[in-house]
Amino acid sequence: MKPFPADQAPAPVHIAGGAVAYGGTRVLDGIDLSVAAGERVAVIGPSGAGKTTLFRLIAGLARPAAGRVQTLGQDTARLSGRRLARLRREVGYLHQQDNLIPQLRVVHNVLMGRLGHWWLARALLSLLWPQELDRARAALARVELEDKLWALPDELSGGQQQRVAVARLVVQQPRLVLADEPVSALDLRLGREIIALLCDLAQRDGVTLLVNLHTLDLLQGHFDRVVALRAGRLFWQGRPEELSQHLLRELYGAEYRALHLDEMALPA
């Protein structure tokens, strides 16, 4: 198992021999992965490869069955209570669904990103009188939805709802963002917009970004590195331009044609 680097500042993500087991079965095993500060990484692989489990491991939502996981300088296996809560405040998690609360207006949903920074009394008060209103308005302006401040989620399109979720990340001010298939429910055009927003957030705010991608058309022009998982193990990693049809056929197997990966303009 590779040791953590001792002569430099810890990477935002450093996994050495990481494994996760459910019911005695390892769904991740032997993962060695480091992600540098400010790096933008796309995680790809077939269904069941362990991509979501990897994100849960990094976020401290899943405990390692073996190895060590260091997130933002913290050994996640040793965290609990307030220390774990502090870590999760600094890790923004964008799920496949936007997870907006339909009964609350956009402003309240955006300000959910501040809950980790507020005392309970202020959080409750914000439901009646939104706190840090200027912060919420500025975040919505960054995703071009400032005019939707008082709208309800069901008044928005799917792309707009996911933009609200990105604005929630902006007000959270995380150091690390994990986006788990954030555009799987959107068409390709809207997907490109959301990925561009996330990468802009990472670049402008100095945030480290990992995105679990199902649609590989969104890779080019956005990411510094691609990490590929297969059957719970690290299969390949490299720059997006190093991908090839041969590699994708080997990685995706039976899913290769179903995902139309043969239509991608890549070297054979």
Rank of each mutant, 00 (worst) to 15 (best):
R89T: 11
G73Q: 08
W129Q: 04
A123S: 15
S47N: 13
L127E: 04
R89N: 04
L111T: 06
R122K: 09
A49H: 08
P46A: 14
P130N: 05
F55K: 03
H108K: 14
G45Y: 09
A141E: 15
R89C: 10
R114H: 07
R122M: 08
R78D: 03
G67P: 07
W118G: 07
V106M: 00
F55G: 08
G50I: 07
A42K: 03
L57P: 05
A37L: 07
H108T: 13
A85T: 11
G73P: 10
R83G: 09
M112I: 10
L100Y: 06
D134K: 12
V110K: 01
A62K: 07
R63N: 05
T52C: 04
P130L: 09
Y93S: 02
W129E: 02
P46Y: 00
R142W: 00
R68M: 00
E132F: 06
P102D: 07
Q70K: 07
V69S: 09
V143P: 06
R135G: 00
T71P: 06
V107F: 06
P64W: 09
Q74K: 08
D134S: 14
L84E: 14
R86D: 15
A65D: 12
I44K: 03
A138Y: 01
Q131S: 14
L57Q: 06
R137G: 02
A65F: 12
E132R: 14
H117D: 12
L111P: 04
R56W: 02
A121C: 04
V110M: 03
R40S: 07
R56K: 12
G67H: 03
R68W: 00
P130F: 07
G38E: 14
A37E: 11
G81T: 07
T52N: 04
L128I: 13
L100K: 13
A66M: 14
V41Y: 04
N109A: 08
V107M: 08
R142P: 00
R40F: 01
G50E: 03
P64K: 07
L94K: 00
Q97V: 10
E132W: 05
A85Q: 13
A42E: 02
L111A: 12
R68C: 01
L87D: 10
V41R: 01
R105T: 05
V41G: 03
L128R: 15
L94T: 05
Y93K: 00
A65V: 05
I44N: 09
L87G: 08
L57Y: 09
A42F: 12
A49C: 02
Y93C: 02
G113Y: 10
R89V: 02
R142A: 02
